[in-house]
């Protein structure tokens, strides 16, 4: 009898079915497709390291660029990469990836190219760090912005040395 009441009640109400074009919103915390911001990526490789199904890989073209590759067909949408990314370059979009007619190879693969930049001091190609990272790690000296890691280390050690050793002695040493 309770069943009869339920189903007759359904008959009186409009159907709860949504049209295929008008499907329910994805919840804001939904872990959907990955988005990669090449400007913030430092190519540190943490995401590729923590990815359990190995959906993220890096390739490099020496002296020109580093590429971040992501294969949706291998992702389990766990979100570890976004959680561990030190510069928040990876984010999980709230929209679900759609169905594709293409083969597993294309359409399901994402590539993001990080262009290398020449060092402003020695000219060596390197992955540029985002400004916020440089500020946090190396201070805010404008001249050192475009340094490669090697030159940055050298500049930092020179600064360190300058802090301990008086200027004339240093000059003398050299």
């Amino acid at each position: 009898m309770a069943m009869l009441k339920t189903i007759l009640g359904n008959l009186l109400r409009p159907p709860r079915t949504r049209d295929p074009a008008d499907m329910p919103e994805v919840p804001p915390v939904y872990r959907g497709a990955l988005a990669h911001d090449a400007a913030r990526c430092t190519a540190c490789g943490t995401c590729a390291f923590v990815c359990a199904p190995k959906a993220i890989t890096f390739t490099q073209e020496p002296g020109v660029s580093v590429s971040w590759h992501f294969f949706i067909g291998q992702c389990s949408f766990c979100g570890l990469c976004a959680q561990n990314c030190p510069t928040r370059a990876i984010s999980l979009q709230a929209d679900a990836p759609g169905a594709t007619n293409s083969a597993a190879g294309d359409g399901l693969r994402l590539e993001s190219v990080i262009r290398l930049q020449p060092c402003t001091r020695c000219g060596a190609a390197h992955v540029p760090l985002p400004d916020a990272t440089i500020e946090a790690l190396w201070g805010v000296e404008e001249a050192e912005r475009g340094y490669c890691p090697e030159c940055r280390r050298r500049a930092a050690s020179e600064k360190l040395r300058a802090a301990f050793v008086p200027a004339e002695e240093a000059h003398h040493d050299r």
């Binding site: 329910p24 992702c75 679900a96 759609g98 169905a99 594709t100 007619n101 293409s102 597993a104 359409g107």
Partner: peptide, 29 residues
């Protein structure tokens, strides 16, 4: 390896698991 090497696949529905609307979309395609 990909399922494509076993049987010819026409539509791929990404997701782990895919949402129901994505599956419906895949069937419609």
């Amino acid at each position: 390896e990909s399922l494509d090497s076993v049987v010819p696949v026409d539509v791929w529905v990404p997701g782990c698991p895919p949402r129901p609307q994505a599956i419906l979309d895949g069937i419609a395609r």
